[in-house]
Simulated scan of single mutants.
Amino acid sequence: MDNPNIVHAYSFLYYGKGGNVQKLIHSLKYYDNKELGYLLGRQAALELQKANSPLCKTELLLPVPLHPRKQKQRGYNQSEWIALGLSSVWNTPINMSVLQRTKESDTQTHKAIYNRWINVKDIFAVQNTNELKGKHILLIDDVITTGSTISGCIKALHIVPGLQISVFSIAIA
Rank of each mutant, 00 (worst) to 15 (best):
I6A: 10
V7D: 15
G19D: 11
N20F: 04
N20R: 09
I25N: 11
H26E: 04
L28M: 11
Y30I: 02
Y30K: 07
N33F: 04
Y38E: 06
Y38A: 01
Y38I: 07
L39Q: 04
G41R: 10
G41L: 08
Q43H: 15
A44E: 03
A45N: 02
L46I: 13
L46D: 09
P54M: 08
P54D: 04
L55C: 00
L55M: 03
P63Y: 09
P65K: 10
H67A: 05
R69M: 09
K70R: 14
K70V: 09
K70Y: 05
Y76Q: 03
T92I: 06
P93L: 11
N95W: 00
R101L: 02
T102I: 15
S105A: 06
T107G: 05
Q108H: 15
H110Y: 12
K121G: 02
I123Q: 13
F124Y: 12
A125M: 07
N128Y: 02
T129L: 10
E131N: 13
H136S: 13
L139P: 08
V143P: 03
T146E: 03
S151H: 11
I154R: 10
K155V: 09
A156H: 01
V160Y: 02
P161V: 12
Q164T: 10
F168G: 00
S169C: 13
A171I: 10
I172S: 11
A173M: 00
